[in-house]
Structure formats: structure tokens, C-alpha cells
Design a protein around this nucleic acid. Structure first.
Lengths: 207, 207
DNA sequence: CGGTTATTCAAACGCTCGTTTGAAGGACCG
DNA sequence: CGGTCCTTCAAACGAGCGTTTGAATAACCG
């Protein structure tokens, strides 16, 4: 049975681990770094999560739950397709400015796109469906009714790609040779630009 | 002075290193893995390139040279904007099928977007200008003449993002829950789709 | 051909990694 | 209060890492 202090330890570990995994990826993250940031003994991770990979699985589950909750709560308030699209894009661009846990979660998923871990492969094949479905449903409202499901899924990924490249290159945006001033105004303009472009593209599609 | 066999060793190291860096990123790549694949003594890397980072710098230089050459040679044959755009998108989607050196180079740059190395930061601030300029020039032909330079650069990045998400998630595309059959026909259709969407978006932009 | 330099090689160094160990600490309950 | 189990802890283990070393080998040139 888990006593009170033990679940505090678990929480501290999960929080620190999210940060470190987001920064270094699964392989690059070190147990010693995590336990230092969590102010916890080194063996605690193996005790509570079995292994580094077990900890990572727990972080992935937490991350996906948080992200799908965020999307679902936003779409609950039904709006025009354009407003919904803009809200979706804004949410995707969020890590450009905020350095909160949601941003960490998105960065973890970005790591997985460059070198998927076995843990993630299993995880995504079982749990990614609902998350992807929300993006697909969003673009569906712009596509012609006869668009195939395959096309809608590709459109959903395509939309995610337009946002993620700016998030992934956040650091480069602010430095030479680009030298953008990445502040709230910039992100707002960028989000509007992407939402406008995406809406125009999908609406005009005459496949 | 470099004698004949030594430049062969250098070449073998660079080739193996491109592969390994593409697969594991800079930090995840191991010297021992590279020298095994290159069939070269372990100390050869420090002898020829000074350090792991020196080797990485050499790979980066080689990669950027190859990619800019590929882009420049394609744009030399002037075509309609639409055809040029489709060719650009196809080139970006190339790693989806081919596993050649150019694909390795693109993967290395993808690694850098999730955790930039100090070597890359210095490198990109000095050398990335020309490469980005080619993407910017491409989208400029679709944007209204009054579009600002900033908007054109963002559009260039935006276009790259639409392609890179499919390259980065290549493995996930083929497996559940997506289960696309990633063959030549799929990549051709995808390239056309992206090129058509991008053209429609940029042409319709009334900023 | 002989001496000099460039290159290769096996072995080792010092360090960090994830995990294991066994004892110490602390909460809970009969 | 005593016993049991959950939790924490410092220390160590074995393996892999990038790098260094110094000797052996191969190429070059007067």
C-alpha cells in the first residue's frame, strides 16, 4: 500500500522527469539529473517505477492525458470552424512562450518523432487514436464532404507540422540569421497567419 | 600533409558518421559505433578530426553543402512556380523512401531542431542563410508582392514544416493506428497534396 | 636505400551511466 | 508498545562513454 509520503515522492519524480525528458529526450536524460532536481534518492526511481523506462512510460501516460484533456475542453465550447482552428493553432504554438508542463509534454513527443523509443511505439499504437482524431475532426470541417478518411488524417498531420516546426525551431527563430523577436505579439500574428493559410488551403482543395 | 590512404580513412569515417549521427543524434552517437561501421581504429577520429565535436562539424559542413547543391541544381532549370514548388516538396519528402546520404543529412538537421548542439548553433548562424533563402525565394513567387520579408521567411519555414512532419513521423505512418502503406505512390500523392495546399494557401493570403 | 614524417593500432584512463544491494528510517495497526 | 511492512538512503557494481598514450606500421623523399 502506498503511504502518504510515497505519493509525494512519485509526484516530485514525475514532475522533474517531465522536465528532463523534455530537455534531453529519453536516452539523453540521466537518472542522476532527475533525482537531483526532484530532491530524491537515486534508488527511488527504480523502487517506484521499476526502471528508467518504467518512469518514462508513466510520464508518457501523464502527458497524453493532459494534452487530450486540454484539447477536449477547448472543443467543448462549439465555435465556428475558423475560431476553432485558430484556437487549436494557438494551443500548438504555446511552448513558444510558456515553459510549463504542457510545453514539456509537447517537447517529449517531439523527441519521439526523431527517434521513437520502444516504449513510445507501444504506447502510441494503443493510445494515440483519440488524440489524432481531434485534429482530424477539426480539419474535416474545412474539407469537402467527399474527402476520404485518409486525406483527412493527412490533413490533420499536415496541420500539426505547420505548427511544430516553429516550436521545434524556437531557439533558432530568435537568433541570427532570422532574429525574430519572439514575444506574445509575434506568436499571435504567427498563429493567425498559420490558421488563415491552413483554412484557405483546405477550403480550396479540389482533389 | 595528407597522404593517399589517410583521405580514404577520412571519407570512410565521414560516411559512417553521417549514418550514425542521423540515427542517434550527436549525443546519442558513439565513437565506437562509428569506427566499427567505418572499419577504422578508434583513435582515428581524434587524430583526423580532433574530437567527436570536430567530426560532427565536418559532417554538418558536408551535409549543408550537399543539400544546398541539390536545391540549387533543381532551381537552375526555371519552371512554373507550381512545378518548382512540387519539386521542392518532393525533395523534402525524399527520406520517406530513400535511405541514402541526403536522407541522413536531413535527419541530422531534424535532430538539431529538438536539441541544438553548440556546434550547430554556431554553424547555422553563419551558414544557414543561403539555404533558407532558397525556400524563401520559392514561396515569394506565390505571395502578393507587398508581402514583407518577415512574412516570406515565415512562409518558407511553414512550408518546410508541412513536409518535415511526415519525414519525422515516417515510422509511425506505417504502423497502427495510421497504417499507411508508405510506397512510391503514397509519397507522390502526398507530395502533390502538400504542394496543392501550400499553393492555395499562399495565393489566397490577403494579409 | 635510409631517415623522417604521417598514419594506424591496441590498450588504458577517468568518467558517467542505469541498476542493485542491504541496512536504516518511519508509518501504520493490532 | 511492538512488530510488520513500506519507503528512503549511501554505497557500490559493471558496463559504456570520449579521449589519451606510446609503440608499431606505412608512406614519402632526398
Amino acid at each position: 500500500m502506498a503511504t502518504r509520503p510515497s505519493i509525494l515522492t512519485r509526484r516530485r519524480i514525475l514532475k522533474a522527469a517531465s522536465r528532463v525528458f523534455a530537455e534531453h529526450g529519453f536516452e539523453g536524460a540521466s537518472i542522476r539529473d532527475i533525482v537531483t532536481k526532484a530532491d530524491v534518492n537515486q534508488a527511488a526511481i527504480n523502487y517506484h517505477f521499476g526502471s528508467k523506462e518504467g518512469l518514462y512510460r508513466a510520464v508518457l501516460a501523464m502527458a497524453l492525458a493532459a494534452l487530450t484533456n486540454a484539447d477536449a475542453s477547448s472543443e467543448a465550447t462549439s465555435q465556428t470552424p475558423e475560431a476553432e482552428l485558430r484556437a487549436f493553432v494557438r494551443r500548438q504554438l504555446r511552448p513558444l512562450l510558456a515553459r510549463d508542463e504542457q510545453s514539456d509534454y509537447l517537447r517529449i513527443f517531439n523527441w519521439e518523432t526523431v527517434r521513437p523509443t520502444p516504449a513510445f511505439r507501444k504506447f502510441v499504437s494503443q493510445e494515440a487514436g483519440p488524440y489524432l482524431a481531434s485534429a482530424t475532426a477539426l480539419v474535416r470541417r474545412f474539407l469537402p464532404p467527399r474527402a476520404t478518411e485518409q486525406e483527412a488524417v493527412l490533413a490533420g498531420l499536415w496541420l500539426l507540422g505547420q505548427c511544430s516546426i516553429f516550436v521545434r525551431n524556437r531557439e533558432q527563430l530568435a537568433h541570427r540569421p532570422l532574429a525574430f523577436q519572439v514575444d506574445q505579439g509575434f506568436v499571435d500574428r504567427l498563429g493567425d497567419l498559420i490558421a488563415r493559410w491552413a483554412a484557405a488551403a483546405l477550403s480550396a482543395s479540389k482533389a
